[in-house]
Structures are given as structure tokens and as C-alpha cells.
Simulated assay, not measured.
Amino acid sequence: MNITKREEDILESLYKEDGPLSTTELKSSTGIGTKAIGYSVREKLEPEGLVSYEYEESNGTEVRVHELTEEGESKIQRGLIGDVFGKSSESDPEKVALKAQVDEMEDRLEKVENKTQANKQILDGLQTRLDKAVEYIEKHDTRLNGLRWALEDSSLMLSIEEYVEKVRENSE
């Protein structure tokens, strides 16, 4: 957005007043001529959505009253419009500090996103291993149940508990 010094002065005046100003009041506070104010407002500031104006009757004549829009006020507060208050955002310590905080927060967010992605990959790997383990256990559980039933039905006359004890003794 390309804002001229004249337009900056109009915006600053409206911002500082925190309310509507007539063309005469704007002329008085900025030193800008009536025609130049009208041109700047109609051709630049209103089409950009920064300033609105309407006509009001005062002492039997129509007076144009200008007001900063919410969008205009927001852009000024965020430092998005030119050099409205005569100091560049690079030299404004508060804006520099805020920008540094934003940059730091963006860096931290990126690190968190990277860690989250890495953790997701680890969890995916663990889930794959867990699925394989469950499959293995189910497969061998069926075999063990088959052996248990075979032993119980066999002529060896061994109980499962006795058989487990013998296996333990032999494996130690």
C-alpha cells in the first residue's frame, strides 16, 4: 500500500482524535487544503477501506465528516500503514521487540512441529512393531492351546503344570 505523507497526516489526525472530524477540523489539524483532503479521502483512503465519510448538516450547510474505519485503525495499530507517526517501524523499539518475539515464537513453533513429526514417525514404527507382536502372539497362542489340548488328551498322563515344571527344570 503506497500512502503519501499527506494521507499519513490525515490518518494520524483521525487516529489521534479517535472520532470523526469534519474537513475543516482536518484542515486545521493537518494544514492540508480542503481540495487535497477531499481528493486524498475519495481517491485513496476510502477505496482502500481506511477512512469513511458522510455528509452531516450543521447550521444549515452540509459538512463532510471523516472517520477512521476499523480496518484503518487496525492497520495503523499493527504498523502496516506507511510511517504514520513519523517514525519507521525499524527504529521503534516496541515494534522491534514485538517483531523479535514473533520471530522467536515462529522458530519455537517450527521446532515443535519438527519434533511432532519425528515423534509421529517413531509412533508409526512402534505401532508397526506392536501389530507384528500381536500377530505373533496370536499365532503362537493358538499353537500353545493346541499343544495343551493334545497333552491333556494324550496317554502320557501329564498335567500342564507338571509339563511346564519339567520344561523349566530342563531350560535352567
Rank of each mutant, 00 (worst) to 15 (best):
L68G: 01
S58Q: 13
S155I: 08
S22Y: 02
Y55H: 05
N119M: 14
T30D: 09
K115P: 00
K87T: 00
D153M: 04
N59E: 05
E90F: 09
L109N: 13
E7C: 07
A118I: 06
S74G: 12
R42V: 04
T4H: 10
T142E: 11
T142P: 00
D124C: 05
L50T: 01
V96K: 05
V41A: 06
Q101K: 12
S171G: 02
L158N: 06
V41P: 00
S52M: 07
K16C: 09
T4Y: 12
L45K: 06
S91L: 08
E62P: 08
E161I: 01
I122F: 15
K166N: 02
T30A: 08
E169Q: 12
E165A: 08
V96G: 01
T116F: 07
P20Y: 02
A36D: 12
G38E: 11
V63N: 12
K139R: 08
Y163K: 08
E165I: 00
V84I: 11
A36S: 11
N2V: 11
R168V: 04
S28V: 13
G125N: 15
L158P: 01
E8L: 01
E57Q: 12
I76R: 09
E135C: 03
E172C: 11
L144Y: 10
T69I: 00
D141G: 08
M1K: 07
S74F: 13
V134T: 08
Y39K: 07
K27M: 15
M1F: 09
M1N: 13
A36R: 12
S40T: 02
G33E: 15
H140N: 11
I76D: 10
D92R: 02
G79C: 05
R143Y: 09
V51Q: 02
D18T: 10
S171K: 11
V65K: 12
L14H: 03
S40L: 08
K35A: 07
L147A: 03
N59C: 00
G146L: 02
L123H: 09
V167H: 06
L147C: 01
L68S: 03
V96H: 00
S159D: 12
E113V: 07
K99G: 09
V134Q: 14
T142F: 01
E90W: 06
L80T: 06
P93L: 10
D18R: 15
D9H: 10
F85G: 00
E62N: 15
T116Y: 07
Q127R: 15
G72H: 06
E165T: 01
L130C: 10
G33C: 06
E138I: 01
G146I: 05
Y53H: 09
Y163E: 14
G86Q: 01
A100W: 00
T24V: 04
Y39P: 00
K115S: 13
E71S: 15
E46Y: 15
K120G: 09
G146W: 00
E172I: 13
E169S: 09
D141N: 09
E162I: 02
L144W: 02
D131Q: 03
E17L: 04
L147T: 07
A133C: 05
I137R: 12
E113S: 08
Y55L: 10
L123G: 01
I32Q: 04
L151Y: 01
M105Q: 11
K132C: 04
S89W: 03
